[in-house]
Design a protein around this nucleic acid. Structure first.
Lengths: 343, 343
DNA sequence: TTGTAGGCGTTATCAC
DNA sequence: GTGATAACGCCTACAA
């Protein structure tokens, strides 16, 4: 005997009734005598009956499964998002099928094929860095197939997406530094070609401007690599001249902030007394280093939850009125820790 | 018109032939004229035909999908494993369905149900901390359903599993501490019901024994939670008495090691001068804290790959001779950093 | 070389 | 109240 092989037919045969009666009894359909109902249910339980989800999918063209296309699982932020997706899916009786693209368009395209073939009910996407042509997604959207983009949102019309407010996250971080009395704030910026870098830089500039502080171009340094070594080197130079020294660092990511912290400490400066530091992303290590790093937390879990919720809504409403062109922007949270708390 | 709705029937109708002919033509079955074959293929391409994987699953009772049951996605090690699994699955045309248990048995059990209902071809499992009763897995194994355990392997007979050599990893770590001159080595152990905890503890004990050092039961403290706070508190107590103080810590995981580090530093002791610390897992933060944490690195990606390969083999051989009782043990790598390098 | 007729497990529709 | 039948999309004996 094999696993999960008990079917409605088996129950029907054993009870000498038709399979339709069994089906109805199990589903509490009206018009079935209480007696039959309870006999069927009892036997089903005894035989350890499990409905065959595949047959159901075929019958109803609905698989109760959602797909997730993601660049890399091994990425703290993304795995947090997956976790949020998983929670919502589980709570609603949906399964999650995972497709990792490793930042390759080619795999993205083949994943979309898989999604279609398997009658997956909807799709959550964070597209790859390589992706510039979105036709494989556009095709889905054109057919009103439920798709929600998260984190990386394409510039397509009528697309549902969930992103983070990088501008305001940066703004708050810098505002906080100013409130702590820091005035000469250095910005370690991310790669120029990423939209998030641009938004964070603009948030930084806006906060300075609104506080009536000068915006100096030589206080914005790009860190293309984002390694601690890179920013450590940069900061060693910048902080060694006592006259022209910044008194704070706002970094576009925690890793670069870490390098800055090292450099500052090695120059004999105290954090947060002499120099304040704030990072971005709230990596796990942020709370663990000395001093604990203040940072802007991106709500990855929440992003996953929200994206999944939206998707499930779209799936439910599919026939009715498709949710379209909806953009959800999640707010970041400034987490103040020892590296910037002066008072 | 809806998505992926083109079926074999549609093609058959358009070409005025029977659907079985279409089916055979698409699969290059013998006994189909070249002409029909090419006409069918051309139209299939033009109509963007995609075989319905659900119908195939039902027909063949094979879904080309494997399930992964994992405690937490947001865990550097586990996400690395998933990544390895994904790679192998993708390379072999399999999909991956993900079930996160959040360390709850209850969710584990319901995940197994999902797996069965959905005709998933095989299962990769790392069970939850709560799991002490394995009957939900045993049931599967009894029916020759392909299951491979990874990282956390149950003590059941005839089970296929892929683990890390926790014993030797721990042994090497402690041996290293001893070689650095540490003598009074504290062990922060993991949850008792996990085999990995047991093996690491035994590795610790063996290393002490082989070096002719005393094994003291009061130098082995269980940290069931594994949070930094928990181990910090424990270490604050243990290291405050100068006479009875350990001079090193071997922790069953990096997080607990971190708490130990905090406690030690806050007591004014220097690492690695006064106290040496070695963790386990090589979390990302390990290299970033001060001092950088020595640790035992686990080959997560490789573990995922190996586990997936074994599972696919079992699926293929299912009818023939089931792979059974196979144990693959991967070696760890000791990474020596500042927290234990005294010389 | 092609068509016909089941059947995978389930449920909706009709009939009795 | 219950049963027979068809259908979801595909494959595969068996017929022709």
């Amino acid at each position: 005997m094999k696993l999960g092989q008990v079917t409605i037919k088996d129950i029907a045969k054993a009870l000498n009734i038709s399979s339709s009666t069994v089906s109805r009894a199990l589903k509490d359909y009206p018009g079935i005598s209480e007696e039959t109902k309870s006999r069927v249910k009892a036997l089903a339980k005894e035989m350890n009956y499990r409905p065959n989800a595949v047959a159901l999918s075929l019958r109803k063209s609905k698989s109760h499964t959602i797909g997730v296309i993601i660049p890399e699982v091994v990425h703290f932020f993304f795995s947090t998002v997956i976790s949020g997706i998983e929670e919502v899916a589980y709570a609603n009786g949906y399964n999650v099928i995972l497709c990792q693209t490793n930042e390759k368009v080619e795999r993205e395209i083949s994943s979309v094929d898989t999604i279609i073939s398997n009658q997956i009910d909807g799709l959550l996407v964070s597209y790859s860095k390589e992706t510039t042509d979105f036709s494989h997604f556009q095709k889905l959207i054109d057919y009103d197939y439920p798709v929600v983009f998260f984190d990386r949102a394409p510039e397509l019309g009528d697309v549902v997406n969930v992103t983070v407010n990088d501008f305001s996250g940066a703004y708050q971080a810098v505002q906080h530094l100013i409130s702590q009395g820091y005035r000469e704030i250095l910005h370690l910026a991310g790669p120029k070609n990423l939209l998030i870098s641009k938004n964070r830089k603009e948030g930084y500039q806006a906060a300075l401007k609104d506080a009536g502080l000068e915006i100096r171009e030589d206080r914005i340094i790009e860190c293309p690599l984002g390694t601690p070594e890179e920013s450590e080197e940069i900061c060693l130079k910048l902080f060694s001249d006592p006259n022209e020294r910044p008194d704070a660092v706002f970094s576009s990511n925690d890793i670069a902030a870490l390098g800055a912290l090292k450099a500052i400490k090695s120059l004999g400066l105290e954090v947060p007394k002499d120099v304040g530091v704030v990072g971005f992303s709230n990596w796990q290590f942020a709370s663990m280093i000395d001093p604990p790093l203040s940072t802007v937390s991106q709500p990855g879990f929440q992003m996953g939850e929200k994206a999944a919720q939206l998707l499930l809504e779209m799936i439910d409403q599919k026939e009715a009125k498709p949710t379209q062109g909806k953009e959800v922007v999640l707010e970041t949270e400034l987490i103040v820790r020892g590296s910037s708390q002066r008072k």
